[in-house]
Design a protein around this nucleic acid. Structure first.
Lengths: 211, 211
DNA sequence: TCCTTCGGCTAATGGTTATTAGCCAAAAGG
DNA sequence: CCTTTTGGCTAATAACCATTAGCCGAAGGA
């Protein structure tokens, strides 16, 4: 088998994955048929089985890779700063940036957990729990060191996480809010949520970078 | 037909609705079968048709009544105050309170829009749009009158709405955060999001009412 | 007491769907 | 050039499911 063939083969696989992702987003996993996915890539339903093992496999693939990507982005972001506020800001920015760049993955990842069959559901749930713990720890660190003012660490971290998830519902690439604008503003909102009011004490409105 | 019979008749209907709501939440609408709903109320699937017209009808009922309840709660809350900050706080409190008291309705309302068949989907979507406009206007009023500091009205109102929706994902009646505690704190968070930092300037942690 | 309605049941019906089986053209590769 | 693999197809399999049809016991009103 030539290398070129190998390339088109994996390209076809990616095409199928991407079509499945779009359809799962629009119709939901149960309502999406193999025939739908096939039609989206120009083949009949049964032909898909030459490329993927099952419909469930497509979902498992999408959901686990989404969670590991998100965890990786979080670790990388947190490692770039030391001050609690800056660490929280960067983690939030990474969180929101992921949700703008991978809207569909995040959307499906949040909505189709119950379509996942065991043991995959438990696996994804544990990855998600790890991710939540990461944020809770960031908030707790800021509280312990006296930088943040929150009534409940758990509630504040839920709030920040939920903001990002919301982004995957309404963000559009061609909307009038650019990715950078959303990322920057949500970074600021996270700090406001934990009781820091950047710019507020100066009495001026802080302006975001670029358009 | 006696009045007692009439009472048990509508009680049975409510029982079915409530069982459907719970199942739709856990399994999702497409994955929930009429047999499942029947089993939950102690009868076989086909017997349900003596009480409801169809599975879709159950969903339509749940989703439209949820949206109208939410709109009513919003109108009522906004009417109780004049100052922009207080109006936003009360609207947020009503929003969050609804999402704690009607967790399942809100959860299904957000996740099963695509299971709704036309024209019901459009109807619910327009109710939801009205609701979003209400919040956007509250934020805009605060900005126009110089009380709020936000970079984007749209983004700030999305953020506040998303917080409430998140509540319906993680709130539990028997959790360690009481309804009042969550409601109060999210009211504060909404104000922080629009640039007000209640209590922050005093340098002390604000305490919520009761446990 | 009679008879009507209520509210349950079981047994179709008709449709949909993931997945498998088996066929075949064309490309790869020696 | 022959042979094998690839990747498509159609047809069959084996569910599953919403909904309808038709039956029947029991309760309730007259």
């Amino acid at each position: 088998m030539s290398e070129a063939v190998e390339r088109t083969r994996s390209a076809r696989m990616a095409e199928i994955r991407s079509a499945a992702l779009e359809l799962f987003t629009q119709l939901g996993y149960p309502a999406t048929t193999m025939a739908d996915i096939g039609a989206a890539v120009g083949m009949k339903g049964p032909s898909l089985y030459k490329h993927v093992a099952s419909k469930q496999d497509l979902l498992v693939d999408i959901m686990t890779s989404t969670m590991t990507d998100l965890l990786d982005a979080h670790q990388a972001a947190v490692a770039t700063a030391n001050h609690p506020a800056e660490r929280l800001r960067r983690a939030t920015e990474a969180h929101v940036r992921y949700h703008t760049r991978h809207r569909l993955e995040a959307f499906v990842g949040n909505r189709e957990l119950r379509s996942l069959v065991e043991p995959h559901r438990s696996h994804v749930l544990s990855l998600r729990a790890d991710y939540e713990v990461g944020f809770r720890r960031l908030v707790a660190d800021g509280v312990d060191s006296g930088h943040f003012q929150v009534t409940s660490t758990r509630l504040a971290s839920y709030a920040i996480l939920d903001l990002g998830m919301g982004v995957s519902s309404w963000y559009r690439d061609d909307g009038d809010l650019s990715e950078d604008a959303v990322v920057w503003q949500y970074g600021e909102l996270a700090l406001r949520i934990v009781g820091l009011c950047p710019g507020a004490s100066a009495g001026t409105v802080v302006t975001p970078p670029g358009p």
